[in-house]
Amino acid sequence: MKSRTLKTCVGLVLLAALAPIPAMVGAQDTSTPAVGALESRLDDERTLFAATISDTPPDDDLLELGRLVAMGGAENVGSGMACITCHGGQGAGDGSGAFPRLAGLPGWYSYKQLNDYASGDRPNEVMTGIAQRLTEREREAVATYYAVVQAPIHRPLGEVDQGLMQWGGQLAAVGSAEKGIPACVNCHGPQGTGNPPSVPYLAGQYANYMAYQLQLWKDGVRDNDPMDVMSAIAEKMSAEDMRAVSEYYRRVENPETTGE
């Protein structure tokens, strides 16, 4: 395959002046991978685009900063909140519904979410404060960091009704003609593994998180995607539809984000 130039991307003008990086705080968290090990994934097919939210190619300085931010080493560290506290050093999140997987999410997508949290376009009591304390450069860096890390998915994933799974798979693949729901795979990439830079993966994401987000879209609480497409879709879904499609995608493999 031809090597691609990392000249990208996306017209976002990211002019955050390079903030002085504070000295490393605390000891290395052994659960976070070394930057050196991540560099090769910067031009990986699936994360290449994800990592290029500025007009200069990402480098290990950005990754180093990103990892630092993830561990709570941001410049304005007043909140004392480190990403890894809830989302894990490798972006594994947890299944409560509140803390999604971040591992391998498109960098541009995560960066936009941080901006939307900060501006209130995506209302969230916890994340708004955290995002507001990050500089532009730090948001970019931590988004890039989580774009390139991988986290395993711990199995088994729990029992689920097979009829529900089947319905979820159907909604994912072909939507519902009766309800006017377009299929998830229209936009969310091959088998729901994401369509960088703007469309996150669903495969392997936590079911509780996805079902909760769908409800927020349906209720109009969340509306920060382009032209509010997700609200238009979620409005047509019942709670059971949301649960079905979320449980289904939770179980779809996404090897690029798990390293499996």
């Binding site: 006017g180 377009p182 497409v229 238009a232 047509k236």
Partner: peptide
């Protein structure tokens, strides 16, 4: 009928639209 915003996918004429 409920319609959704165009995705600018580039598959319009000669194709059906799965995006509503």
């Amino acid at each position: 009928a409920q319609l959704h915003p165009c995705a600018y996918c580039g598959f319009c004429e000669r194709f059906g639209c799965g995006y509503f």
